[in-house]
């Protein structure tokens, strides 16, 4: 069990995080667990989601390269996420 309660996606859909959860479900990255965990602080979760989208999906560096780096760092941290 997670060390912090994971909030239900149906509940989050009714909060200000609803549109961002929907995007997670569509794009699969970040995994919706991003909001299930951080949704305990909705404003922070929203801000970090936007930051994530900016660093991951915009800019001049190739998105595929970023995805390899993301997985590389996930492995390095032994992170299941």
């Amino acid at each position: 069990m997670s060390n912090i309660t994971m909030l239900d996606l149906d509940y989050l859909a009714k909060t200000k995080l609803g549109p961002f959860v929907k995007k997670c479900l569509k794009h699969r990255a970040p995994d919706p667990a991003f909001h299930a965990i951080q949704g305990h602080n909705e404003d922070l979760s929203k801000a970090m989601y936007i930051a994530w989208g900016t660093v991951f999906s915009t800019g001049a560096v190739d998105h595929k390269l970023k995805e390899i780096i993301r997985v590389q760092l996930s492995r390095a941290a032994d992170c299941n996420y």
Partner: peptide, 17 residues
């Protein structure tokens, strides 16, 4: 961003949805 988040999330012990 990823170094920090993966380290944080690892400590929470949850799995992808």
């Amino acid at each position: 961003f990823n170094v920090g988040y993966h380290t944080f999330f690892r400590t929470l012990d949850f799995y992808p949805m």
